[in-house]
């Protein structure tokens, strides 16, 4: 659990965060989204005290971070950044093992954990553990960065636009990996991005941040369907926001179990966006769903969850 309690931060005269209070629950995937300069990265960095705050408190599991020893605090929180920042003189395995080694884990346990993470993050190209960062592709490097953040099984992980510099395909693959790992391990995730689609795809809850304040906090559907004000509506995309809604809603929630259809079956876990894509590709208005039932174009359009 991460709690921001009336947090305030200014750089000189410029107020970056103004009296901000927010609670991120245990096991939640929480996304801070907003334009550049909205203060979202600064807010994230107050959690592991890379940014000292000027007022208020930041609590991790009920304890004020300011009262904790700084290195111990940081070693207990996973951290991944957009520029990755791998250690160029260390191999992939050594990079992943940084925090466990700082924590003094036994070598055998470290080796086992590194092997596990390499498999978990689909880094299983032969011999990759012994390679140096300058031989990795951008996507591989960020996978190592994420593995490094997760290495010591932290209960809380902070990610600062980790996929911002990746090509769309690599980004989607990494988003899926991270979302899956987060769900399976029950990690509390605080994730910063400026990409609205990424925020809606990943977040259990999303906070839109504008000029150092929280404009709206809620589930992706809540932001899309009932924006708090005109500015939120603008950022979420106006009527285009409903296209984003398709990427959030799942087939299983809009399908009809008692009907059947012809063609390639879609997964009940697929998004409505995926289903619509298949309909457009196959020129059909209804598709079968794996395990029985069908999804209809008219339901995508009208039936709300």
């Amino acid at each position: 659990m991460i709690e921001f309690d009336h947090v305030r931060k200014a750089f000189g005269d410029h107020v970056v965060i103004e009296d901000l209070s927010l609670r991120v629950e245990d096991g939640e995937f929480f996304v801070l989204v907003g334009p550049s300069g909205s203060g979202k990265s600064t807010l994230l960095r107050t959690v592991n005290r890379l940014v000292p705050i000027d007022g208020g408190r930041v609590l991790v599991d009920g304890q004020d971070v300011a009262t904790q020893p700084i290195e111990a605090l940081r070693r207990g929180i996973g951290y991944a950044i957009q520029s990755v920042g791998l250690f160029p003189h260390r191999t992939v395995a050594e990079n992943i093992a940084v925090v466990p080694r700082l924590l003094g884990w036994p070598e055998a346990e470290i080796d086992a954990r590194v092997a596990e993470l390499i498999a978990l993050l689909k880094l299983d190209e032969p011999g990759i553990a012994g390679r140096y960062p300058d031989t990795l592709s951008g996507g591989q490097a960020q996978r190592v960065g994420v593995a490094r953040a997760l290495a010591a099984r932290p209960k809380i992980v902070l990610m600062d636009e980790p996929f911002g510099a990746l090509d769309p395909l690599t980004r989607e693959s990494l988003q899926a990996s991270v979302k899956q790992i987060q769900r399976e391990t029950g990690t509390t995730m605080l994730f910063v991005t400026h990409d609205m689609d990424e925020a809606f795809r990943l977040g259990d809850r999303v906070a839109l941040m504008l000029d150092g304040r929280l404009a709206q906090v809620g589930t992706p559907l809540a932001l899309i369907r009932s924006p708090a004000d005109e500015r939120v509506n603008e950022f979420v995309g106006g009527t285009r926001a409903y296209l984003r809604e398709l990427a959030v809603r799942r087939v299983r929630d809009s399908m009809r179990r008692d009907e059947a259809a012809e063609g390639d079956a879609v997964s009940p876990d697929a998004t409505l966006q995926d289903a619509l894509g298949v309909m457009l590709a196959e020129r059909r208005e209804r598709l079968p769903v794996q395990g029985g039932g069908a999804i209809l174009l008219s339901d995508i359009v009208v039936r709300p969850r």
Binding site: R74, R75, G85, L86, L102
Partner: peptide, 25 residues
């Protein structure tokens, strides 16, 4: 690189560890 230093600090290295394990090599 600045991002390497940022990552080292964020992961919980002390100044001494940063110097000996990252900056010196």
């Amino acid at each position: 690189p600045a991002d390497t230093r940022e990552a080292a600090r964020g992961l919980g290295m002390t100044r001494g560890q940063l110097l000996l394990r990252v900056q010196l090599p």
